[in-house]
Simulated assay, not measured.
Amino acid sequence: MIRKAPISTIMTEKVITVNKTDEIEKAEHLFKHHHIRHIPVVEKDAVVGMLSYTDLQRLSFADITNENEGDVDAMVYSMFSISQIMKRNVVSVSPRNSIKEIAEIFAKREFHALPVVENNKLVGIVTTTDLINYLLKQF
């Protein structure tokens, strides 16, 4: 039953991550190359923040200048670090949390991805897209 199925059945286990000391250009490359919108920021295996593609888009001024977009982004990105733009105090869930519990969190909060953590170690990520795809398979 949907309500009792654990989130581990729909989470992504091979999570793309960055470190808070990585360059923002690396994060941008990972977002575009892997077609993802959220990247956990880790130190060792512990989640210390969450970075979204929207966070990077907020930094871009390329649309309002006459300059080359790549040049403008590189200049702006060099002024900031992942640590400065990541979200802190990240809400995380256990792989044993139910899909229903995750759906309730997404419905109440204004984010679209949750790191899945066990024993303070990142073991997966679940997104609203994962949840929607799961629900579509139920029909």
Rank of each mutant, 00 (worst) to 15 (best):
S98W: 00
P6S: 05
N120F: 04
M11Q: 08
L136E: 14
Y134W: 14
T54C: 06
D71Y: 05
V48D: 02
Y77E: 09
A46L: 06
E104H: 14
T54F: 13
N97F: 06
N133Q: 11
V72H: 05
I24R: 08
A103H: 05
A62G: 12
I10D: 01
G70R: 11
E110P: 04
F80A: 11
L131I: 07
E28R: 09
V41R: 00
M86H: 14
F111D: 00
I82S: 13
E69K: 12
T12S: 11
S52K: 10
K108R: 15
E43Q: 03
V42Y: 03
L30T: 00
D45M: 10
N19P: 00
I102H: 09
I102C: 06
H112Y: 13
I36L: 01
G124Q: 03
I64Y: 15
Q57D: 13
V41C: 09
K4W: 00
I10G: 08
T21K: 15
V116N: 05
L136D: 12
S94D: 11
V48R: 05
K121C: 04
S81M: 13
V116Q: 05
L114D: 05
K87W: 10
T129N: 14
A46N: 13
L122R: 00
V116W: 08
M11E: 05
N19H: 12
L114Q: 03
A62W: 02
R58E: 10
I2Q: 01
F106T: 04
V18F: 09
L56Y: 10
A46W: 00
S81A: 11
H38W: 11
I2P: 01
I132F: 13
P40K: 07
I82M: 12
L51H: 06
T21G: 02
